[in-house]
Design a protein around this nucleic acid. Structure first.
Length: 939
RNA sequence: GCAGGGGUGGCAGAGUUUGGCCAAAUGCGACGGGCUUAGGACCCGUUUCCUUUGUGGAUGCGAGAGUUCAAAUCUCUCCCCCUGCACCA
C-alpha cells in the first residue's frame, strides 16, 4: 500500500469514529488553538509547522487522557485580501504567475477579483491540506472572521473595552499615499516594503534682513555648533510658507508633503538662487553663515535644506571640497569647526570626517557610496565614543547631548519635528509614500496602567514555551502603548464609535478562540439575536439564561449549553503561533483576555514555534524555493512531511525541509515497518541479558519522549521515538535478540509514541502487530521504572568502547605485518574497581592515597590490598582524574558479559575471543586493565 | 539607537541554569573501505594536529582578560550576527 492509501484509510477511520469531535464530558478538558491563517494565498510550510505542532500536542494530550478540543478558523478581515484582489484586477503579472504555479485556473483567477471568492477558494485549499496532513481538528467548529456572528462577538468585545475607557482618540503618523489618499501598509507598497517612519529635527535659521526662517532637517542637532554654512539644492523651487502661524522656507516638494503633518500654507515661491546671497543665523550661537549649492541635497527629503557641518559629516565636507575645486571663494573660506572628540581613526584629528572619507576611499576622489559608508561609520563612532568639546553641552557624551539638545531646541521654539519615510517606500500606484498625521484616529490604549497590571498578572500565570521567550513577552507587554484600532478601508466589523471605520484586523482577533467553544452550538442562531446580554451571560456569567432567552429569542437550551461549553473548555488552553506574532497578536491576546474575562479563563500556555527553512535557506518567493504543501504531500506523504517540518527542530529552532531529511525519515519508518512485518520469524522465549537491556532502553525512552513532548521539544522526542528506536532494534538483533514478546512490546510502545508525530504510520504499525483499537484513542505509555537498568546499558556501552579499542590495536598489529587470530581480554581485579569508584566520588587523589596507606580501605571493604599495586593504579588514574566515573559492574559480571558476547565481538573484529581475570592472567597486558577498559592482548 | 535573542567542529545543532565523565551528542556532508552488475540503498572506518601494540599528548567552543586544582560552561570588557520597533497580517 502506498502512503496515500494508508493515510486516507486512517483518516477515514478517525472520521468515522468521530475521534476529534470534542464535546464536554467527565474528563479534564484541554483546548489547543493556533492563530488562524490569513487566507489570501495557499497554505505553506510555515502553516504546517504551527498547526502541526498544535496537532502533536492535541494528539498527545488526548492520549494522556484529556478531552481535547482542537478547532480551526480562517482570517479574512483587513486589507491584504482587498489588496490581492486589486492586484488581480490590474492583472499584476507576477501575482498571476504565482497563482498559476499553484495550479489555479484562469477562470478561478478571474473570479478572484471578488474578495469573498478569493477567500473561500483558499479556505478550501487550507481545509484540504489540513485534512491531508491528518490534523486532529474538530471540523464542526470552523469559523470565519467575517461571519456576521463573529462581528457580533467583536462588537461585544469592543463594548467592554469602551466601558473600561480604553478607546481614545488622537493624532497619529501613518504612511500615506497622496495619490490614492489612503493609509499605506506593507502590502500596499512596491516590493512589500513597510513604510518606515523616522523623526528628524527641523532647525530654524533666521534669514538675515528677512521676515522668515529656513528649516534645516537633521538627525544630529548636537552638531549645530559646527555649522559653517547651509546647503540648498540648486535649480529647485523653494517656498515660503506659513507653518502653524510662522513663516518658514522649505523646498516646494517638501512643503507639499509637510502639509500632511502640519498646517502649511504656501505664501510665495522663490528659487534656490534667491537664497544663495543671504546669510543665516545659527540659533545656538548667533553666527551668520552663507548658503551654498549642495550636490547631495534631495529636495524631496525632509525640508529640502541641509545645515552643513563639514567636520562631522563627510557629505558636507565633500560638497565643500567640490565647490572649492570649482572656484567658489565662499567655500574656500570655510573652515570646518570640530565640536566632538572621539575614538577610532579620527581620534585627535582636526577634521574627523576626513579620516573617515580616507578610510573608505584611498583614491582621494570618493564616490557617493564611499561617502555614504564614511557617514555611517562616523555617526556610529561618534555616538559610541564621542564627547562634546564646545558649547553649553561641553563634556557630555554625544548620546546624552543629542537628546537634551533635541528637547531644548523644541522647547525654545528653534526647532520642530519633521517625520520622514526613511526607506523611500513607494505605493503600488507609483507615488512616493509620505507621512500623514491622522488627527481623528481611534486608539486602543494598551498604555493604560491599570490594564498593564492585569496583563502582567495574566502573563505571570501563563506558561511560555520555550520559557526563554518570556523576557521577550515581558518587553512586548511594557512596550505596547497606543494602538490604532480603526481603519478607513478593508474587510471587517464596523467600529462601534465611528461607523465609517472598520476595526483593524488584528484587534478583532484577540479573544476569538473563546468563540470556538460555542460556535457549533450557535450555528443556527441568527446573528441579530446575539446581543451583548447573550455574550455577557455565556462568557462572563452575568444575568440568567431564562431572562436572556426572553430578550433575545434564543432558546434556553442553546444559551445554557453555550455557557456550559465555554466554562468546560476555556480552562486549560494552549495557544500556538510563530514568533512574528509575539509583538502584536499574542501581546494583545494577553491584554484583551485580562480585561474581558474572569481570571480563570485567562491564557494558560503560549507556545512559539520557529520558522521553516528550505534546503538551508529561508523560504521566500523571491528565492523561488517555496515548497507547496500539496507537492510535498504528494512526494513524501503526510507523516514524513509532518515529521520533517515539525520534528526536525526543537520548538523554537528553525526546522529544515530537505529531501535528504525526508528520505532518512522514510527509511527509518520503513525499517520499523519491516520488523513488524517479520514478527512471525521470532518466537517467545525466556528473557536474556539483551532482552533486559532492550526493556531498559524502552522504558527510558518512554520517560525521555514524555518529558520532551511535555515541553514540546519535538526534536528530542522524535529522535528518541524514531531514530534511536531504529538504533536500538538494530543493536538488539545484532546482539542476538530474537524474543517475539520483547519485540512486540517494544514496537507497540513505539507505535504509541509515534501516534502524535506520524499518526498514520503509527496506526498502521499498531494494527500490524495485532491490535484492533485506534492509537488516536489509546493511552499514552507509562514507563515501568523497575525495568530501568543503567548498569546494563552502561555495560553495552563499555562493550562498544572495548570493541573500538580492540580494532584500534588490531590495526596497529596488522600494520606491523602480523596476522591476528585471537583477542584476549583481561578483566581488571576487584581492587581497581574499588579504587576507581573511590576516586570517582570526589576526584580527590590525595584522599584515596591516604585511605590506602592508613588501611582504611582494607577495613571498609574487607579485602586485602597490595599496597604498591594500589598506589600505582591510583597514580595512573590521577593523570586523567577528570574522566574517572563510577562503574556499576564488578569483575565477575564483566567476565560473564564478555564471555556471553564472544560471538558479537568476534563478528565485530574477526577474531576468536577469550577472557581471563587479571589475577589469573600471565599476560603482559594484564596490569594495564582498568574497570572501564579491560586489558587487550592480540595473539 | 532602544529592546530581546545569539556567536560551538565542513554545515545544521546539542551542551551553558547545577564548572570536572566534553575533542564536545545527534543529523547531514566529505573522504576511504566493504557489499554489489550498479548504487543516491546498506555496513565499517576517518573527518584539529601530533603520537602509537593501544585506551597518550597538544591546541580548541567570537576576541581578550579574570576567578578556579579545573571553564564551551562563572565574572568583566570588546567585536560581530539575527529579530522587533507599530497600526501591518
Amino acid at each position: 500500500m502506498n502512503h496515500e492509501e494508508i493515510e486516507s484509510k486512517w483518516q477515514q477511520e478517525w472520521s468515522e469514529a468521530s475521534v476529534f469531535d470534542a464535546d464536554p464530558d467527565q474528563r479534564q478538558s484541554y483546548m489547543v488553538t493556533a492563530a488562524f491563517p490569513y487566507v489570501n494565498g495557499p497554505p505553506h510550510m510555515g502553516h504546517v509547522r504551527t498547526y502541526g505542532t498544535a496537532d502533536v500536542l492535541a494528539r498527545y494530550k488526548r492520549m494522556r487522557g484529556f478531552n481535547v478540543l482542537f478547532p480551526i478558523g480562517y482570517h479574512v478581515t483587513g486589507t491584504p485580501i482587498i489588496a490581492q484582489c486589486k492586484r488581480i484586477k490590474s492583472k499584476d503579472p507576477i501575482l498571476i504567475k504565482d497563482l498559476k504555479k499553484f495550479g489555479i485556473s484562469d477562470e478561478d483567477i478571474e473570479k478572484m477579483e471578488d474578495p469573498m471568492y478569493l477567500a473561500s477558494y483558499f479556505i478550501n485549499e487550507f481545509r484540504d491540506a489540513f485534512h491531508a496532513l491528518g490534523f486532529s481538528m474538530d471540523w464542526r467548529r470552523q469559523l470565519i472572521s467575517i461571519d456576521p456572528k463573529f462581528s457580533k462577538f467583536v462588537e461585544w468585545q469592543f463594548s467592554i473595552l469602551n466601558e473600561n475607557g480604553l478607546l481614545t482618540k488622537g493624532k497619529h503618523p501613518v504612511g500615506w499615499c497622496p495619490n490614492e489618499n489612503n493609509a499605506v501598509g506593507m502590502h500596499d507598497t512596491k516590493s512589500d516594503t513597510e513604510p518606515e517612519i523616522e523623526e528628524m529635527l527641523g532647525i530654524k535659521f533666521q534669514v538675515e534682513n528677512e521676515d522668515y526662517k529656513i528649516a534645516c532637517a537633521t538627525y544630529r542637532p548636537e552638531t549645530l555648533y559646527g555649522v559653517t554654512n547651509i546647503f540648498i539644492k540648486d535649480g529647485v523651487r523653494y517656498a515660503i510658507c506659513e507653518v502653524n502661524g510662522e513663516k518658514l522656507c522649505l523646498s516646494s516638494t517638501a512643503a507639499e508633503s509637510m502639509a500632511y503633518q502640519a498646517n502649511v500654507k504656501v505664501i510665495s515661491e522663490i528659487t534656490a538662487a534667491d537664497l544663495f546671497d543671504k546669510k543665516y543665523i545659527n540659533p545656538i550661537n548667533g553666527n551668520a553663515v552663507p548658503a551654498l549649492p549642495g550636490f547631495f541635497v534631495d529636495e524631496k527629503f525632509g525640508t529640502g535644506i541641509v545645515m552643513s557641518v563639514p567636520a562631522h559629516a563627510p557629505f558636507d565636507y565633500a560638497a565643500l571640497l567640490d565647490l572649492k575645486k570649482k572656484g567658489s571663494e565662499t567655500a574656500a573660506a570655510i573652515l570646518p569647526i570640530k565640536v566632538i572628540e572621539l575614538d577610532g581613526p579620527a581620534k585627535g584629528q582636526e577634521i574627523p570626517s576626513v579620516a573617515y572619507i580616507d578610510v573608505e576611499s584611498q583614491e582621494g576622489d570618493p564616490d557617493s557610496g564611499a561617502i555614504e559608508a564614511a557617514t555611517k561609520n562616523q555617526y556610529k563612532e561618534e555616538l559610541r565614543s564621542g564627547v562634546m568639546i564646545m558649547g553649553d553641552y561641553k563634556g557630555q557624551k554625544v548620546k546624552i547631548a543629542r537628546d537634551s539638545m533635541w528637547k531644548d531646541l523644541i522647547a525654545s521654539n528653534d526647532a520642530f519635528v519633521v517625520r520622514v519615510i526613511a526607506n523611500g517606500a513607494v505605493c503600488r500606484c507609483g507615488f512616493s509614500v509620505v507621512v500623514k498625521i491622522v488627527d481623528d484616529q481611534w486608539f486602543l490604549n494598551y498604555g493604560d496602567e491599570g490594564w498593564k497590571v492585569k496583563a502582567r498578572e495574566a502573563l505571570k500565570n501563563t506558561k511560555i514555551l520555550p520559557e526563554k521567550l518570556r523576557p521577550t513577552f515581558e518587553g512586548a507587554l511594557e512596550w505596547i502603548n497606543l494602538r490604532a484600532v480603526a481603519r478607513a478601508q478593508g474587510l471587517g466589523t464596523k467600529f462601534p464609535l465611528d461607523n465609517t471605520k472598520i476595526i483593524e484586523s488584528l484587534s478583532d482577533s484577540t479573544i476569538y478562540m473563546s468563540l470556538y467553544t460555542i460556535w457549533n452550538i450557535i450555528e443556527k442562531v441568527e446573528s441579530e439575536k446575539l446581543t451583548k446580554e447573550f455574550f455577557d451571560y455565556v462568557f462572563l456569567g452575568k444575568g440568567s439564561a431564562e431572562a436572556i432567552s426572553k430578550t433575545t429569542g434564543i432558546s434556553y437550551e442553546i444559551i445554557k449549553r453555550s455557557k456550559e461549553s465555554f466554562d468546560y473548555w476555556y480552562t486549560f488552553t494552549s495557544r500556538h503561533s510563530g514568533v512574528d506574532l509575539i509583538f502584536n497578536h499574542l501581546t494583545m491576546y494577553l491584554f484583551n483576555h485580562s480585561i474581558i474575562f474572569n481570571s480563570k479563563h485567562w491564557p494558560k500556555q503560549i507556545a512559539i514555534n520557529g520558522t521553516v527553512l528550505c534546503e538551508g535557506e529561508k523560504m521566500s518567493k523571491s528565492l523561488g524555493n517555496t515548497v507547496d504543501v500539496k507537492e510535498a504531500l504528494g512526494k513524501h506523504g503526510a507523516d514524513v512531511t509532518r515529521f520533517v517540518i515539525i520534528c526536525s527542530a526543537d520548538l523554537f529552532g528553525d526546522s529544515e525541509y530537505s529531501n535528504d531529511a525526508a528520505r532518512g525519515i522514510k527509511e527509518r519508518i520503513e525499517y520499523i515497518d519491516s520488523i513488524a512485518g517479520n514478527l512471525s520469524l521470532y518466537s517467545p522465549s525466556e528473557l536474556r541479558h539483551i532482552d533486559y537491556w532492550m526493556y531498559s532502553r524502552l522504558n527510558r525512552k518512554i520517560i525521555t519522549v514524555t518529558e520532551a513532548i511535555d515541553k514540546l521539544e519535538l526534536r528530542t522526542a522524535s529522535t528518541a521515538a524514531l531514530y534511536e528506536a531504529v538504533i536500538d532494534l538494530k543493536r538488539y538483533f545484532l546482539r542476538g535478540g530474537n524474543n517475539q514478546i520483547v519485540i512486540t512490546e517494544y514496537l507497540s510502545n513505539i507505535a504509541l509514541m509515534l501516534g502524535p508525530l506520524t499518526p498514520h504510520f503509527s496506526e498502521e504499525l499498531w494494527h500490524k502487530i495485532g491490535n484492533d483499537t485506534l492509537v488516536a484513542k489509546e493511552k499514552w505509555p507509562t514507563a515501568n521504572e523497575s525495568m530501568l537498568n543503567s548498569k546494563m546499558e552502561m555495560e553495552e556501552e563499555l562493550m562498544d568502547k572495548m570493541i573500538e579499542d580492540s580494532k584500534h590495536v588490531l590495526d596497529l598489529v596488522k600494520r606491523k605485518g602480523q596476522e591476528p587470530k585471537e583477542i584476549k581480554y583481561i578483566v581488571a581485579s576487584e581492587y581497581k574497581y574499588i579504587l576507581n569508584n573511590e576516586l570517582a566520588k570526589d576526584k580527590n587523589v590525595k584522599r584515596v592515597m591516604e585511605m590506602i596507606k592508613s588501611g582504611e580501605l582494607e577495613n571498609s571493604y574487607q579485602i586485602k590490598f597490595d599496597l604498591q599495586k594500589c598506589m600505582d593504579f591510583v597514580s595512573s588514574m590521577a593523570k586523567h582524574i577528570n574522566t574517572v566515573n563510577t562503574v556499576e559492574t564488578n569483575p565477575a559480571d564483566q567476565y560473564d558479559i564478555i564471555n556471553d558476547a564472544k560471538e558479537y565481538i568476534g563478528n565485530g573484529t574477526g577474531c576468536r575471543i577469550t577472557v581471563e581475570k587479571e589475577e589469573e592472567s600471565k599476560s603482559s597486558k594484564a596490569a594495564a586493565s582498568t574497570p572501564m577498559k579491560p586489558g587487550i592482548e592480540i595473539l
